[in-house]
Design a protein around this nucleic acid. Structure first.
Lengths: 117, 117
DNA sequence: TGACTATATTACCATATGACAATATAGTTG
DNA sequence: CAACTATATTGTCATATGGTAATATAGTCA
């Protein structure tokens, strides 16, 4: 967060963005799109999903500006609209890994030391 | 996202983390904690919130490893447990700003050009 | 135009989540 | 121990969200 406090509206925007990324299924979609653009049908197959469901998630991602799309004949091709996503995921992954390491250390630490709580 | 595809479980973890950050109220809490540690009561006052509500959000943040806490007498002091949060928010802010700039450009562009739809 | 394909939208249900009030728990102080 | 303070937990309600089936829309092709 920048040093100046954020306005209510900005916080809402940021939160919305995080919420959009807060669905495993949408992350899976993004992960697939990282390999290159995909039609809805391809994603439905690849992710073994329901057509309307995939479509709805894609719409959400689109509204959030996380993916772009283009029509070609009957099909619509989706692709990554904001590579930032992957950076964010990598950072979260890293942080999760660190946390796990800390937890492990904590759990395997020889007893007799004061526990944090 | 790392280059190797992530497992279902990992995606769930990442999604959960994003979801935790997907609440304006929790972001407000984190924003306050950035200034330094705070008791629950202080946060309730500062954020003009309901005690049980604040407490619940703090619990969520704690479970996610985003904040730490320590007891001192009757009070419990919370503080930032993972500064990563602010980096993430900054990045999202940046990205939102970029998006706004693009939107603006798009909307004010002289007519007659093909729209990207 | 009518049949067909691909995608989006709508409607419905079940579940998750946030706000809030009420209650429980833990610590302090007399 | 009783009274008090600070925080956590529980229960309830309203709303949001995901999954899915049904339907609508847009484009293609004969």
């Amino acid at each position: 967060m920048p040093n100046a406090p954020l306005t209510e509206a900005t916080l809402e925007l940021i939160a919305r963005r995080f919420r959009t990324l807060g669905e495993p299924f949408r992350l899976r979609i993004l992960q697939h799109l990282e390999q290159g653009e995909c039609t809805v049908g391809e994603l439905v197959e690849l992710l073994d999903g329901n057509q309307s469901n995939v479509s709805k998630h894609l719409q959400l991602l689109y509204d959030a500006g996380l993916v772009t799309r283009r029509r070609e004949g009957n099909s619509i091709f989706y692709s990554i609209g904001d590579p930032l996503v992957f950076k964010l995921c990598r950072m979260v992954c890293q942080s999760e890994a660190d946390k796990s390491r800390r937890d492990l250390k904590e759990l395997t630490r020889p007893p007799g030391r004061k526990a944090t709580r």
